[in-house]
Amino acid sequence: MRQLSPGLFLVLVAFTIPLAVEFRTVAGFFGFDLPFISMILFEVVLLAILTGVYVLGRLTPDEDTATTS
């Protein structure tokens, strides 16, 4: 698993927010009226995935990731 730096992790967290906010708009465009709570749930799921990737990267780093940051 690729190792993420704390900085990149923080920036990726920021990126999940517009995705979550607009998730409901896109669903609404296709005729699904999702409740407000779905936006929060979607964000939690995204954050969980991201945290998983971050933690896995820490536990099992690749050999050649020493130079990335």
Partner: peptide, 17 residues
Amino acid sequence: RGGEGYLSWLGALPWRD
């Protein structure tokens, strides 16, 4: 800085700066 690929080079940027 060692970035590769079509999109994964974005990860090689100094985001901590």
